[in-house]
Amino acid sequence: MSNNPIFLNGLRFVLLVLAQVMIFNRLNFMGFINPMIYVLFFYWYPIKTNRPLFLFLGFLLGFVIDMFSDTMALHAMAGLTLAFVRPVVMRFCFGANYEFQGFTFKNTTRIQRITFLLLLIVLQHIVFFTFEILSFTHILLILKKILFTSIATLFLSVLLSSLFAREYD
């Protein structure tokens, strides 16, 4: 059962949404830091994907979180963008051979994986906070939020991803 990709990703989807809206959206560490850990969905999703489905799932994941947290479609926009650029980021991190048969996360180094996660997080936060405020007069505020929330998200994502690491087959 746990090897069925539909079941596994469905479960991840639900658990990540619940964790995000019930725990991490209410953290307000230092008054404004709410880590966005649902980025792990994009990190864990299988490498070989049906791209339109993945785009749609990314959009849906963000949109459900948006409905819970009254942020219009900001998370949806971030999720959608992540799903769209993931192949490019993967090529950058793992080299062109990630598309070959037989490539798994097992053959990658820890640095490569963390770089991959970091790039996804930075991208997600840039999209989210830029459109959240959407004003040049607040550019410092935007940068401050991107920087500190990214650090918190990276920290928590690395912890969570090693906590729930599974045997790569």
């Binding site: 339109p52 926009m77 963008t81 959407l134």
Partner: peptide, 25 residues
Amino acid sequence: RNAFLYGLLLIFCLVLTIRSHSYHQ
């Protein structure tokens, strides 16, 4: 088709977000 799908959904998000900046939630 992926780029088109992306564009379409993105426009949907942008409309929802930007409209809410000036109008009701």
